[in-house]
Simulated assay, not measured.
Amino acid sequence: MVKIASWNINSVRLRIDQVARFVDEHEPDVLCLQEIKTLEKNFPHEAFETLGYTYRAVHGQKGYHGVATVSRIPFRDFSKHDWQDNGEARHIGVELLGRGQGLILENVYIPAGGDVPDRQVNPKFGQKLDFLDRMTRWAGEIERPTLLVGDFNVAPLECDVYDHRALLKVVSHTPIEVEALSRLRDAHGWVDLGRHFIPPPGRNYSWWSYRSYWRQKDHGRRLDHMWASPELVAQAKAHTFVEDTRRWEKPSDHVPLVTEFDL
């Protein structure tokens, strides 16, 4: 079995102790991180080496965004995309070389899109939609078994948010974003593993705002995803979201997703 995890860590240096606790408890072979908020030279390489993650691919920038994939399984760098052509570090891909040899693992942090769902008023929203469109064209040309993971910043289904009607005009759940994400899904025939293993209307939120008392109100959204190429789905054996991490001291606002594969 190969266990692959994905987590928007919201600053890897600030939360390296939480990462250590998570990998000690869940032992992922590969960990994909988003929003690492650091340059590659300042990434906590030594800490990950100590944890056994000898192989690391980092696409970072100072203070914002950034993605990294760390692994106990050998891999080679495969892709590094700048979907907005603005220098933001939001996508890195690797090819596994050991167990699961040949599997492509693409790790992406899609922009949040600001607060107003109108590209004329809010350029960030337009950038998000354009980002998804460029990824859609890319996905249509994928020919190898691929796992696409990360913080997509879109909760696509009605049951992916705590109140569908209340959030229809809130960025992350608007119809235009859901349609854009659907086009990305259909371009490659991706299978949403979160809903493959936890069918609607099963609860599997991955994000709760710092602004609300999340444990009492449970105002969550499913913004984080793991999507598999159709030919890879049969090898996926289990999928979980690790909600306990949201209860830890000074947590990330996202929780990890973990999928086990028979590779």
Rank of each mutant, 00 (worst) to 15 (best):
T38A: 09
D118L: 12
H164F: 13
Q61Y: 11
R222A: 08
I142H: 06
K124N: 05
A139F: 01
Y162Q: 04
K80F: 01
L33K: 01
V170W: 00
K250C: 06
R56F: 01
L232M: 15
V191E: 03
H188F: 12
P44M: 09
R203T: 14
A180G: 04
V58N: 05
D151P: 10
G87D: 10
V191A: 02
V154T: 10
S229Y: 04
G66W: 06
V12L: 03
D218E: 15
H91G: 01
K3C: 00
S11I: 07
T174E: 07
A228D: 06
K169Y: 01
I36L: 11
E106T: 11
P74H: 11
L193A: 05
V242E: 14
T38E: 05
A47P: 00
T259I: 12
E27H: 14
V19E: 06
E46A: 15
C159M: 11
L193M: 09
T69Q: 04
Y205C: 04
F152T: 04
H196A: 13
P111S: 10
Y53M: 12
M226N: 02
G87F: 13
E158Q: 14
L148E: 11
A234L: 06
G102M: 05
V70S: 08
S6K: 08
K237L: 11
W227L: 15
D115E: 15
R195W: 01
E243S: 11
D17N: 13
A155M: 10
E25G: 00
A236V: 06
H225L: 09
D133C: 02
L263P: 01
H188W: 00
K250F: 14
P256Q: 10
E179D: 15
G126T: 08
K124P: 06
G220Y: 09
A139R: 02
K41W: 00
R134L: 02
H45M: 07
T174Q: 05
G63T: 12
W248N: 07
R247I: 00
L157N: 08
H164S: 15
P251S: 08
